[in-house]
Amino acid sequence: MNTHKTVHRLVWVWNFDKEERWLNEMAEEGWVLESVGFGTYHFAACEPGEYSIGMEMHACDHDYIDFVKDTGAEYVGRVHRWIYFRKKTIQGNFNIFSDIDSRINHLDNIGKMLFTLGMANLCIGLANSFHTTPNIGWINLLICALVMYALGHIHEKKEILKRDRLLHE
């Protein structure tokens, strides 16, 4: 019986919650995330439901990773700014966030990252459109458009949480 498997999968940034859900479904089926790369997930066999997975965007910060590890979670790995943790379910529910404020804050940080990425591509794209031949500026403009689309999704998610926040924590 195989004890390891690798899955290739690309996830849009605004679907990070779906990605987390999928990783948790895998863990429930007996495949726990062992390491991650860009679009690549390595799983190891585990007892079904032995682990739960948490992921978030956070600046590279060993202080933070140690903090989360001290609460009983294991650090799985990172892809760019996305950090993946896992924790044995026997130690209780595992979530990265436990209130609306911190979820809004997380979405804010994702939004800021996307905005910077979008602006950088816009500038490079415009500069290349006017100055270079053959014209490759459209690639950056395309990326910029995609990033703006992602930003819209993140904004929408944030607005839903903000509406909730008006009534309760």
């Binding site: 948490g54 903090f67 989360v68 979670a73 990265i96 436990s98 911190s102």
Partner: peptide, 12 residues
């Protein structure tokens, strides 16, 4: 009733 999560606690 309240289980603070690590990310929330760290930020707070």
């Amino acid at each position: 009733r309240i289980r603070l999560a690590a990310g929330t606690l760290y930020g707070a």
